[in-house]
Design a binder for these strands. Structure first.
Lengths: 109, 109
DNA sequence: CTCCTGTCTTGAAGCTCATCTAATCAGCGA
DNA sequence: TCGCTGATTAGATGAGCTTCAAGACAGGAG
């Protein structure tokens, strides 16, 4: 769905973030600011290449629609992407986006 | 219910991040999940060693108490620390905490 | 001591978010 | 076609967050 490059960006400690960059960064960090979404992302990134929703949902004590909602937030933040194949839906991480988020916190001066 | 013969995908394993780690990570990312706080952190980390509140506040269109509140959130997340010296209060970053947050996003290889 | 400046805390209003139930969509098999 | 299962969407509710105005606190100057 979403493909943005947003490739190279100065580390936060070298150049102060402008308002636009801060707004985009806030969207990504807001998507990460929930324990369930962090665990979902962790499972997705550590699953090798992709993982089925039906393997994610049983790991939590919340309803299916709630998991679906959290996955949508991660998707709209550009951190993961998904595809339906037959009955099941599979999710995988978007490494570029994860690296970009991490680069906002780098302290390399 | 029955009929779960057809497995939808490979058995997953893993959970790189446990519930406790996810909860602590969520606190840190929640602190980063606001454009003003991201810009504040950016200014603090790019200020060399430390920066005065009086240099931060005029950069934003919100009131002083609001800036103070956001700085408190960053402080309670362990991302920055501060000290009053005379009339003014100075803030500086906590590199270890920033590196730890970034490391949570590097579980993608 | 008293006043002034800089910063933080408190309390309340308005908005956003997490979660649920119920309903809907998508695919498979009989 | 109909019915079943997996996943998402829609609507509602309660909790939490952002913001400001007003007041409190700390330190320096007179």
């Amino acid at each position: 769905m979403s493909k943005q490059d947003a490739a190279c960006c100065a580390p936060i400690s070298v150049a102060a973030l402008d308002a636009a960059g801060a707004a985009e960064g806030a969207v990504v960090f807001k998507a990460l600011a929930d324990p369930i979404r962090l665990r979902l992302l962790s499972m997705i990134t550590s699953a090798g290449d992709e993982i089925c929703v039906c393997d994610l949902t049983p790991q939590f004590d919340v309803s299916g629609p709630t998991i679906s909602h959290h996955l949508k937030v991660l998707r709209e933040a550009g951190l993961v992407d998904c595809e339906r194949r037959g009955t099941w839906v599979y999710y995988w991480p978007v490494p570029d986006r994860l690296r970009w988020a991490a680069s906002l916190l780098e302290l390399t001066r």
